[in-house]
């Protein structure tokens, strides 16, 4: 554990809880992509199956359980409790275009051919692109609520902080996992356009709207 990893995890946690609290408080999931949330639920489920097979630390296990519960809680709010507020007309990204290639890739580029390893790799590839339906939705509606922008910023920062963590770990522990590093870089790049808008608009108190 290092400071970059810890800040990354906290940023990730903040993002997930921010989204959950926003939906709960406003009793609405307008502007949120249910498809991205489905993808994140698949990501956490396939990655954290190791809760049953390997123990790292109390911290890791608790975080995994929180991520899983918050993710399924978000799906429950979006597709059941506040379903009428779900803006499905604008959530039109075809997620099979992400689910299938990520699955194929996880069989092609993987460290070892075991069920857990392939599922873990799949979760890494899918996470890299899971935000695309949400970014697509923002581009279709041309705007995002401020809380949604904070959510996206925290979620994007998490992987960027993990990149610093991997650099740090490479020098201090000789740790190098190219699958997760390259996927993490792709994931962070997807947010770059959004980061720019966030810094130039939202941080100056303006609403995020596209020209």
């Amino acid at each position: 554990m290092n400071i970059f990893r810890l800040c990354g995890d906290l940023s990730h946690l903040l993002a997930i809880l921010l989204l959950l609290v926003k939906i709960w408080k406003t009793r609405s999931c307008a502007g949120i992509s249910g498809k991205s949330q489905i993808l994140f639920a698949i990501v956490y489920t396939t990655r954290y199956l190791d809760l049953f097979t390997s123990f790292v630390s109390i911290y890791n296990s608790v975080m995994k359980i929180v991520f899983l519960s918050a993710s399924y809680g978000t799906l429950y709010l979006m597709f059941y409790k506040f379903k009428p507020t779900y803006d499905h007309n604008h959530d039109s990204f075809r997620i099979l275009y992400l689910i299938v290639p990520a699955l194929v890739l996880s069989f092609v580029i993987v460290h070892a051919y075991t069920l857990m390893e392939v599922l873990w790799t799949y979760s890494i590839y899918l996470e890299a692109v899971a935000i695309m339906p949400q970014l697509f939705m923002v581009s279709r509606t041309g705007e995002a609520e401020t809380i949604t922008s904070h959510y996206l910023f925290a979620l994007g920062s998490y992987r960027a902080l993990y990149i610093l963590n991997w650099i740090y770990r490479y020098y201090t522990e000789d740790f190098l996992d190219l699958i997760v590093i390259i996927a993490g870089i792709v994931q962070t790049i997807l947010y770059c356009d959004f980061f720019y808008l966030y810094i130039t608009k939202v941080l100056k108190g303006k609403r995020l709207s596209l020209p």
Partner: peptide
């Protein structure tokens, strides 16, 4: 790099 047995990241 080290082989990464037991993934310790989230």
């Amino acid at each position: 790099g080290k082989p990464k047995e037991g993934k310790d990241e989230l």
